[in-house]
């Protein structure tokens, strides 16, 4: 049986805002008196259940304000859940022994700017009670691994956003964790940086490390994740293996003809749902497999040469957009 590395059971968070928001008795009174400006609340996460297996790369997706970062903060012990529970590496949230096996990179990280990268990694290593020898060895390795050897003598205040992201990844890996949580790890990185991060994540998987990551860059998620969860408005919309989620029946085909003049192409295009003309070629989108044979015959009869006919598979982006724009179930 596959073990669970990270799980949540209907975890939820409501933030109390306003002048008296933090004081429950006053908030109750204020609500009774309809003084919403004085004390009101925001439901950031309305109940999310996750199950991440050991050794997999799990993508946690959702539009801005969906509750991803709040969920991650609850997992990391930065925010107290209002309801529900969770586990990290088999232990309840907050367990110190489990946190000793955890690595975390927050979104838009800021670090102690007065430190140089080796001092910085040494600081985090000491929080894990690593020996001086272990800290030095690991820090030296990670500095090379994230490509910061050239900037090792500079304090972090002189680092660019991309360099901060790299040193942040290094601190998340200082203790050789069994579970790594990355919140937007590709943020601020150029294409080379993104590739480096993807390579690091693949390396982690090869070593059996579980990676839980949230990202807006769906292309990367699609490339590296085994399973994903899509969260919208504080609730789970979809969760599962990418192959399963994207395995909808193929309903559309992209048919490309060359040798059609514009007038004929327009006529043929009336039987397609979309038409584009690029460099002497006409591309048509055909709605269903049933119409495909008749459409191809019509194009050939009109004097065109069939260049390709390709089924259109649903992309993660399409799934994401569909889930994000779907109304919440009552």
């Amino acid at each position: 049986m596959t073990q669970t590395a990270l799980s949540t059971d209907d975890i939820a968070k409501t933030f109390n805002l306003g002048f008296l928001g933090a004081l429950r008795p006053f908030k109750f009174l204020a609500q009774r008196m309809q003084l919403k400006g004085i004390a009101h609340s925001v439901e950031a996460v309305k109940g999310i259940s996750l199950d991440v297996k050991v050794g997999e790369i799990f993508g946690f997706l959702g539009p801005n304000g969906a509750g991803k970062t709040t969920t991650i903060k609850m997992l990391m012990g930065l925010v107290h859940p209002t309801r529900g529970s969770g586990t990290l590496l088999g232990a309840p949230l907050g367990d110190r022994a489990a946190r000793a096996r955890l690595g975390f990179l927050p979104e838009h990280p800021y670090f102690y700017e007065h430190l140089k990268p080796l001092e910085f990694l040494d600081f985090y290593g000491r929080l894990f009670r690593m020996t001086a020898r272990e800290r030095k060895k690991r820090a030296e390795y990670l500095i090379d691994r994230v490509g910061l050897r050239h900037a090792v003598d500079r304090p972090l205040r002189k680092y660019s956003k991309g360099m901060i992201q790299r040193v942040g990844i290094a601190q998340a890996l200082i203790n050789e964790p069994d579970l790594v949580v990355f919140d937007e790890p590709m943020s601020g990185l150029d294409p080379m940086g993104r590739k480096d991060v993807r390579d690091i994540i693949f390396e982690l998987r090869e070593k059996g490390t579980t990676v839980f990551l949230s990202s807006h860059i769906l292309q990367d998620v699609e490339m590296i994740c085994d399973r994903v969860a899509i969260v919208v408005d504080g609730r789970m919309r979809s969760q599962g293996a990418l192959d399963t989620l994207l395995d909808d029946p193929v309903e559309r085909f992209e048919v490309v003809f060359s040798g059609l003049d514009d007038e004929t192409a327009t006529l043929v295009g009336t039987h397609a749902v979309d038409t584009r003309a690029i460099a002497g070629r006409h591309t048509f989108i055909v709605e269903s497999e049933n119409d495909l044979d008749a459409f191809v015959r019509m194009g050939l009869d009109a004097g065109g040469h069939l260049t390709s006919a390709t089924p259109i598979r649903q992309s993660l982006e399409a799934l994401f957009v569909a889930e994000a724009s779907r109304e919440a179930a009552p």
Binding site: R96, P106, H108, Y110, Y124, L127, F128
Partner: peptide, 14 residues
């Protein structure tokens, strides 16, 4: 404010 606490508190400390 500088969010430095985000990387410290998840470590095995009280």
């Amino acid at each position: 404010e500088r969010k430095t606490i985000y990387t410290v508190m998840p470590k095995p400390i009280y």
